[in-house]
Design a protein around this nucleic acid. Structure first.
Lengths: 151, 151
DNA sequence: TATTGTTATACTCTATAACTATA
DNA sequence: TATAGTTATAGAGTATAACAATA
């Protein structure tokens, strides 16, 4: 296979992207068997076992615009996983809530996430896994990353 | 800020995606100052200081369809960074080659990559960086990941 | 006037499939 | 028939901006 030029492979960011994209696309393929996208999974996961929250808050956490949230919410509503409720205290505001169907599928999707994790990190020892996780978490904290990625 | 549910944060894949997306979007923002997308950068990087290669090979390395390669190549050609050459030995085949302008911008983009790397991993010590890189490289090898990610 | 959410529009990345030219 | 590449079409994710309803 054609290799990438050596001058460009000395960045952590480069390897991070290679691994992350592989893991994510493996996960996306698993989710697809249940006709759910990664964005939809992240969305539902945010709402799972939690009081209904307004779209604006979903937008903030997922680093999406409000328009983007509307689009994903529309798809989830069409699939029967989500409902919109009016906020009784503010006529402009809404609350998003998983339906019973939505609450039922989340654990199934979580099982796929578990399966993917096991599959992609089987080659690392337990200490190595802890080490990797610790370095990543340290990075999230140091950089003040406060959003949940979609893709 | 609204936190993600604890049940879902015990996966390496989760943290990997959070960090990788943050690093990548920081890089994308830097590239944008020169009107170049990440896909275009990866594309040009593949061709830099190398004999011209056919679109089919770019498709293979970047895990794109041939149609996708055509699209990105078209944009790079419009920007004056790339040219198509006919293969003298096979009338169906082409070779993609950076122009002088293309060869000039790649080092500038590489400098942005260096800057991004420094910025996003400043909080890690040299041994920690080596450790993280080693764990990621080990994963790439163990999984047989042989493509260069775009997004 | 400011805020919440929707809608319209557009662009990038990605895929599938039909098509052209060549082998 | 098979292969290299292009083109057409579509869908997801993302952004900006205009808009309606409410505050």
């Amino acid at each position: 296979m054609l290799k990438d030029s050596p001058e460009f492979t000395d960045h952590i960011g480069y390897w991070l992207r290679r691994v992350s994209n592989a893991v994510s696309s493996g996960f996306a393929a698993k989710l697809e068997t249940l006709d759910v996208s990664v964005a939809e999974w992240v969305f539902m996961r945010l709402l799972y076992k939690r009081d209904p929250i307004p779209p604006s808050q979903v937008a903030e956490v997922m680093a999406l615009t409000r328009g983007g949230v509307t689009k994903i919410a529309d798809r989830l509503i069409n699939k029967g996983y989500l409902v919109r409720e009016d906020d009784p205290e503010d006529g402009r505001s809404q609350r998003l809530k998983l339906t019973a169907k939505g609450n039922q599928i989340v654990p199934k999707l979580a099982a796929l996430a578990d399966k993917n994790e096991a599959e992609y990190f089987a080659h690392l020892s337990a200490p190595e896994k802890r080490q990797l996780m610790a370095l990543l978490q340290k990075t999230v904290e140091a950089l003040g990353i406060d959003t949940v990625p979609i893709t």
